[in-house]
């Protein structure tokens, strides 16, 4: 049974797609969905970084609201983004990580971003890569 879903978001269209998938799956399973944005900068973070992260997460909240689904949101600071996602997944005891294949830094011609790649490689739980 899937009870806790973690979806990594960064404001990219692929991440939004991943969030929509997570919400749909969350509803099918009656599972909790947490949208995580990792602020990939070395602390101390600036107010601008925090504001951007909040904006990304509130956009996901809106999507959830429109879909009449529940979604928790979380920010985490880690200069190594994939490590932030993996740590959150371990600490929170999630059953599944959902992530877009390319994030914001993804170059068009690259088929898969390094964050998704590292998460798929090193996670302790199943990972769904969305495209």
């Amino acid at each position: 049974m899937i009870k806790k879903l973690l979806v990594a978001v960064d404001g990219s269209p692929e991440a939004e797609k991943a969030a929509r998938y997570a919400l749909k799956l969350g509803r099918a399973y009656d599972a909790s969905v947490t949208a995580l944005n990792v602020i990939g900068v070395e602390p101390p973070i600036e107010r601008e970084d925090e504001r951007k992260s909040k904006e990304i997460l509130s956009h996901i909240k809106e999507i959830a609201k429109k879909a009449k689904a529940n979604c928790k949101t979380k920010s985490r600071i880690d200069p190594i983004v994939h490590r932030g996602i993996l740590d959150e997944a371990d600490e929170g005891g999630y059953d599944l990580i959902i992530i877009g294949s390319k994030g914001l830094t993804g170059i068009k011609r690259m088929v898969m971003g390094s964050v998704a790649e590292n998460v798929a490689r090193h996670a302790n739980c199943p990972v769904t890569v969305i495209r």
Partner: peptide, 22 residues
């Protein structure tokens, strides 16, 4: 090897979502 080469290629090049189970 944490992710096999087949799983790696499939997650890279598939047209659809891919779930890796471990």
């Amino acid at each position: 090897v944490l992710l096999g080469s087949v799983a790696d290629s499939v997650t890279h090049y598939a047209h659809c979502p891919v779930t890796i189970v471990r």
